[in-house]
Structure formats: C-alpha cells, structure tokens
Write a protein that binds this DNA or RNA. Sequence first.
DNA 1: CGAGTAGTTGATGTTAGTCAATTGACGTGG
DNA 2: CCACGTCAATTGACTAACATCAACTACTCG
Lengths: 213, 213
Amino acid sequence: MAHLQRHMVVTRRKVRAGQYLYRNGQPFRALHFVHAGFLKTCELSEDGREQVTGFRMHGDLLGVESIGLGAHTCDAVVLDDAEIWELPYPLVLDALQRIPELQVRLAAALAEEIRRDRVWMLVIGTLPAEQRVAAFLLDLASRLARLGFSARHFILRMGRADIASFLALKHETVSRALSHLEKLEYISVLRREVRLLDIPKLRACVGTPCTLQ
Amino acid sequence: MAHLQRHMVVTRRKVRAGQYLYRNGQPFRALHFVHAGFLKTCELSEDGREQVTGFRMHGDLLGVESIGLGAHTCDAVVLDDAEIWELPYPLVLDALQRIPELQVRLAAALAEEIRRDRVWMLVIGTLPAEQRVAAFLLDLASRLARLGFSARHFILRMGRADIASFLALKHETVSRALSHLEKLEYISVLRREVRLLDIPKLRACVGTPCTLQ
DNA sequence: CGAGTAGTTGATGTTAGTCAATTGACGTGG
DNA sequence: CCACGTCAATTGACTAACATCAACTACTCG
C-alpha cells in the first residue's frame, strides 16, 4: 500500500458487482484504492483469450500497471460491491513532488506487485492442480487475516471459473480439487463458503513451512 | 529502461557465464543495468522448487523487484558473459530527488515489468505448449530486433530446461515443440541456433496480428 | 581421448481437459 | 407461492496433452 490516499483529495466511487472499474483501452487518469469490496483484474489478448491476473480487496492499489501509459492495459471487474477511492494521476504526480517519501513508497508498492506476480508464476509453474488450489486458499486466508477477518472461515467472492483462470486450470479441475481437499478433511466447502480445517497440512502440501496461524 | 545510469556514477562489473549476479537473500544494495551479456532471473521456493521468471539483455534493469526490501528475493544468473552497470541504491534515491523526471521513469519501468509478467501469465494460462514456445521465440526475436540484431536468426543463450521452466513445461516438451515447428517449416533449429522462417505463421499460431517484420 | 552435459526421440503413464448429465440456488413472473 | 428458466457447481466417463522414463547422439571441456 502506498499511503497515497492520505496526501490528496480523493473521489469516492461506489461500483456495483458486475461493473467494470476500468477496461482495457480506456484512458488512464487515476490510480484506484480499494476501500471496500472485491475485484479481479483480467489480462486480455487480441484474439479474445482472457487471463485473471489477480484479486483485489481493501488496501490494494489498482491501475499501477498502466503508469507511464495513456491507457489501461487490462480490465478491472468488480466482483462484490466496492467503494473505490480515485487518486487522479496528476494529483499523484503532485504529491510525489511535495512528499519525497511517497516516491519510495510508490516504487515499493510496484515492486511488491512484481514479487507477488512472480510467486504465482512459481506456483503455476511448479505445483499440480490440487496444490495450486491449496496455495490459493492459503493466500486468500492470509490476506483476510491481515484485514482482521477470519483466516479459517470465509466466503469466496469469485466463481470457480475465475479461480481456474487465475491458476491456469479449468473450472471442473478446481471443483474436483476442492472436493478432494474436503475428502482429505483439510477444508470444508459448500458452494462459496470455505472453512480451512487443517492449515498446517494445507501449507505442507504447497511446500511452505507453516506461518499462517 | 529508466535512464538512471545517465544520472549517476556507475560501477562497471564483468560477470562470467555461470556466475550469480545476486542471489536470493543477499543484501539489496544496488539496481543493475545490463550493458552486455545475457541473464535469467529465478524465483525460488522454501522447499527447493525453482521457476525462471525472465531473461534479461542489454537495456534491461535488474533488481527492481527488491525495492523496498533489505534483501533480494530471487536469483539473477548470468547465462552469457555480461557487463553490468551497478547503480548503488542510495545514489538512485539521490538522483530521484535531484531529477524529478526520473521518478516517473522509474515508476514507468516498474509498471512495464508488471505488464510483461502479466502477458506471460496470459500466455501460460491460455496457450498450449507449442504456441507458448512460438510466443517465446517471437518475443526474443522482437527484443533482439529492437537492439538492432536480426529477428530472423539468433543464438539461444539459455538451455531447453530454462525455456521449459519459464514456459511452465518440461524440457522434452520444448524440444518436441521446436522439432514440430521445424517440421512445419515455421522455424529451423539446430541446438541453440534458431532461424524464424515464417514469422506471420508463428504470430498467427499465438493469436496476435503480425507486427514484427 | 574420455567423461560429462545438453538435446532429441520413442514408449508409456498420468494429470488435467473435454464433454455431458445432474443438482441446487436464485430470480422472475404467472 | 410456486413454476420456470438461468446460472454455478459438481460429478462421471472419456480423451488428449503433457510428463516421465529411458535410450541414444552429439557437443564441450578437462
């Protein structure tokens, strides 16, 4: 998080589920701070292929990937009614001038984004389907925990198809992986309601020492 | 490219093939501008899995993913003898203060990195093996072309295993894909020497209109 | 020259994808 | 309120793509 929203006047914008916050090709005029709600970002190809590249929630900054360009290069789709704080890009540039510390914070936020993406490349490149799904659940859980929500019990805001796209799988495969993790009693899952029953075992299966909980 | 190296004293460093430029966990002290040579970056997991996240050549800036941290979070391995210009991070911060334009350039360079990574997520998430390999060759070709080298004829600086890791495949699959593209007469390949014989057809098979050449 | 490494290719195995049927939730309008 | 249509999710049967294992070749470098 870049703390940018503390140093300028922001426009608060409510966006309903199903709406686009911005779309590929639209002019890039602002960064967007997610104050509430839930979104996904999608990369698009010329021939209509689509890849979910991430899920965003409170505290996340959207649109940074378009810095230096005139237009957005991906879609941001609201999955759960959101309140977005718009940080007009000219004001951002202003603030960066006035408060030198912000420069470093912004660069750090961008760098963190790169690191996050690369960790997912590692997950997708080296783990089989079920373990990717486990990694996804653990990531979601730890992000929710950082916001003060329960890490053990939560509602998925996205459909199986979105999870599948993000993990480079098909939705049937995600569904089977969830069912199997349930049979192992690592989780319980009913439609979009998820409970993590055995976090250490989940973490073991994605090859990381248990730090969450 | 961030033009940073034009605004400060840089240390020039020769690094031989096989050496690490930096390793996961080492203190982060500088950004690295690739003046010559060829490198790969690798993301590592706690349990020893490894993922190649990119290949770098002249004009690329390395280490940006560690901005905001005290230590590097990945490995940078030299594949072909390199000359690296070190930009000590304190001097970078200095320059950002002195030359406000650089802030924007650095942020833009970081944003470009994010966009690049996301395009590869799209490739890996939506294209089958052979088309990933075609996309890889076309990307390499266009980067070489931008540097004034031939886009139609070049030497791969990395092994099949590195290409495979980058594309989330196995090295045998890459080998077969290359052989098949050769049988189709889209390319010719002998060990590491590659010729692109039919760029439009290669581009068609990755689903992008033909812009290269 | 000989060992070691990188690449290719073939045979076989496994995982995830495809296709299809079914169930359950939700929303609308009769 | 219930019937209906729609959409999301699950599950099964089958298939295809890629991985695995193994043999072999050809460079590379002491």
